[in-house]
Every structure is written in structure tokens, then in C-alpha cells.
């Protein structure tokens, strides 16, 4: 009995040390881990397309290559058509705002705040200066991080490379991983993979398609309302939609601020709010139930806390990845506990 206990202790110690080494190693190579995670998510999203090509008689390699050719084509078209527009809008944002009515509007808000909140010590806010500064900084940040960062170029080369091999050989990787599992846990490991593939895969694909639809709706709505940076706002709203709860609000908020600054009044802002409310309603009522259905069912509070924790720990990327990661943990823990209780899976 004592020998059995000490054996278990040795096993636990060994696996704990192994886990600590793995965590330390992964933290040391965190930038590569990030690239692999992003690539894995992209491979997940693109997997059904590769399956579709395969079902038309192509081999896995040629199906993956075909998808890359199509994506390259789409990126090429976007580069020619959309990037000049996006770049123009970011540059214009970088130069700051100078319409007179914006200055009038901001100073009017400042006067209102000073006269009503003077008891709180609110004096000389210099809102316009601060706003212009932050706008220029935002523009710089976007220019620096989105358009011409050196690390981005490395990522742009590495990510497609990793995605290609994950898509082409993903099944072999999974099979190799399962093959090293002990006989007792091998079927359960495959079962977990199956659950993760269906639930997390559906969630990611759903979110991705949802983001594209919301982005298109937003671009169209902002163009219709007459907002100056309609394309930039639409793209931002679509991407922000990938982050539950915070994304749609942030997208709408950016549009409202830009529309106020553009016109100096609230009328356009009101139209923008109505447009985003309609988009959100449409998204919640039609797009989400159809596209994001069958994915991981998580309590809204869990999602909210996961997004907050992800944001706190790893910034925007953390917010983006928090839901799939928590979903992954949920599936693993849920299935593990359920099967432990129901079928009595015992430790070897």
C-alpha cells in the first residue's frame, strides 16, 4: 500500500516537474507559441474548405494549395482595391482633425463640463488638444502596428507556412499524438479531440464568418449614414466583433466619436447608434443563431470574465483567444469529470 502511495507521489512529482518545464519553455518561446496558436485557429477556420475540395476529388495537398492560391488572389485584389482606401483613411486619421465645427463642438462640451462639474475641481481640460494628440497617436499606432511593422512581415511569412502544414498534415499530427497515449486513455483522448474539433471548430468558424458579415454590414451602414471613415470603421467593427460583448460596443463607440468629430453635432451620431443597434439586432437574431450555433455553450458571465482576464493578461490577442481557450478547458474538464463520474475512468 505504501509502495503504491509512493509510486503515485513519484508520478505526480514527475508530471508536475514536466508541466513546470513545459510552461517555462513555452513562456520563453511565447512569440512562437502565439504564432502557432494563431496559425492553428486559422487552420481550424479553413479546414472545411479543404474538406470540400477533397470531396471534389483533390488530394489533401492540392486542396490546401488551392485554398492558398484563392486566398492569395483575394489578398491581391484587396491590396489593389481596398488597401489604398484603408491606408488613406488611416493617414487622414493620423493628420488629426481640423474642421472648425469639431473645435466648436469640443469646446462647447468642455464649457458644459467645467460649468457643471466645477465643484469636482474640473478646470482647463484642453479637450481639443488632447483629442488631436490621441487621434494622431492612434493613427501612428495603427500605422506602426498594422501596416509596416517588421515583426508583422516575419509573422506574415511564418503564419501561412505553419497554417499550410497544419492543414495538410493536421490529421497525421493528431494521429501521432494519440499514438503516444497509453492504451487505457487512447480512446478517451480521441473522444476529447472529436468534441474539441466539433465545438471549438464550430465556434471559431462561426465567429469568423460572423465578423465578416458584421464588417460588411457596418461598412455599408456607415457609408449610407455618410461617415467619413466608413471603411476603416467597418473593418474595425468587424474585427472587434470577434471579441464578445466588448467588440460590438467598441466598434460603435469609435464610429460615434468619429461622426461627432466630423460634423460637430449629434445628429449623425444618432444615426450611427441606430445603424449599429440594427446591425447588432440582426446579428443576434439571424446571423448568430444560424452560424455560431452548435458551438461551446458557455454562460455569458463566464464569457465576460474570460474576455476580461484574457485582456488583462495578454491584451487584445488575449481577449480574442480567451473564449476558445476557456471553451477548450470547459470541454476537457466537463468531459473528464462527466466520464470519471459516469463510467469510472480510473488512473492507471
Amino acid at each position: 500500500m505504501d509502495a503504491k502511495k509512493s509510486g503515485t507521489f513519484v508520478k505526480i512529482t514527475f508530471f508536475s516537474i514536466l508541466a513546470i518545464i513545459a510552461v517555462v519553455f513555452l513562456t520563453a518561446v511565447s512569440s512562437i507559441v502565439k504564432l502557432v496558436i494563431i496559425s492553428a485557429l486559422m487552420a481550424y477556420v479553413l479546414d472545411p474548405a479543404a474538406n470540400l475540395f477533397e470531396s471534389r476529388g483533390m488530394t489533401r495537398t492540392s486542396a490546401t494549395a488551392a485554398i492558398f492560391i484563392i486566398i492569395s488572389g483575394l489578398i491581391g485584389i484587396s491590396y489593389l482595391v481596398l488597401l489604398p482606401l484603408l491606408s488613406e483613411e488611416i493617414k487622414s486619421l493620423k493628420d488629426g482633425f481640423h474642421p472648425e465645427n469639431t473645435a466648436v463642438m469640443v469646446s462647447r462640451i468642455e464649457e458644459l463640463l467645467v460649468s457643471n462639474l466645477s465643484f469636482l475641481g474640473v478646470r482647463d481640460l484642453h479637450l481639443l488638444g488632447r483629442l488631436q494628440n490621441s487621434m494622431a497617436r492612434t493613427g501612428d499606432w495603427m500605422f506602426g502596428h498594422v501596416l509596416d511593422a517588421a515583426s508583422l512581415i516575419t509573422s506574415l511569412i511564418l503564419i501561412p507556412f505553419i497554417v499550410f502544414f497544419l492543414m495538410k498534415d493536421g490529421r497525421e499530427f493528431q494521429k501521432a499524438f494519440v499514438s503516444i497515449m497509453p492504451n487505457r486513455y487512447f480512446e478517451f483522448t480521441l473522444y476529447l479531440f472529436h468534441k474539441l474539433n466539433t465545438q471549438i471548430g464550430n465556434f471559431l468558424r462561426g465567429q469568423f464568418i460572423d465578423a465578416i458579415i458584421v464588417g460588411i454590414f457596418s461598412v455599408f451602414a456607415m457609408w449610407l449614414v455618410g461617415v467619413k471613415y466608413y471603411f476603416l470603421i467597418g473593418v474595425f467593427a468587424g474585427l472587434a466583433n470577434l471579441i464578445p460583448y466588448f467588440g460590438p460596443i467598441t466598434g460603435a463607440l469609435l464610429a460615434v466619436i468619429l461622426s461627432i468629430l466630423q460634423t460637430g453635432g449629434f445628429q449623425m451620431a444618432l444615426y450611427v447608434i441606430i445603424a449599429f443597434t440594427l446591425i447588432k439586432l440582426l446579428d443576434d437574431a439571424i446571423v448568430q443563431p444560424v452560424i455560431v450555433a452548435k458551438s461551446v455553450h458557455m454562460h455569458p458571465l463566464t464569457v465576460l470574465l474570460a474576455v476580461l482576464a484574457g485582456g488583462k493578461l495578454f491584451g487584445i490577442l488575449g481577449m480574442l483567444l480567451s473564449v476558445p481557450v476557456v471553451g477548450f478547458l470547459k470541454v476537457v474538464l466537463h468531459e473528464g469529470i462527466m466520464n470519471y463520474r459516469k463510467y469510472g475512468i480510473k488512473a492507471v
Binding site: K175, S179, N183, R184, E187, Y191, Y343, G344
Partner: peptide
């Protein structure tokens, strides 16, 4: 290509009654 090959020793349990069947 999609089959998994497993080796079992004498008297080893392949699956137990009540386990998940895949």
C-alpha cells in the same frame, strides 16, 4: 491511413463495460 494500430499485452483491458465507445 486512418486506422490506429495498438499493441496490447496479455490480460490487458482494451475497453471496459461502461466506457465511452468510439
Amino acid at each position: 491511413r486512418i486506422l490506429h494500430q495498438r499493441e496490447y499485452t496479455e490480460a490487458e483491458v482494451i475497453f471496459a463495460e461502461g466506457d465511452i465507445g468510439l
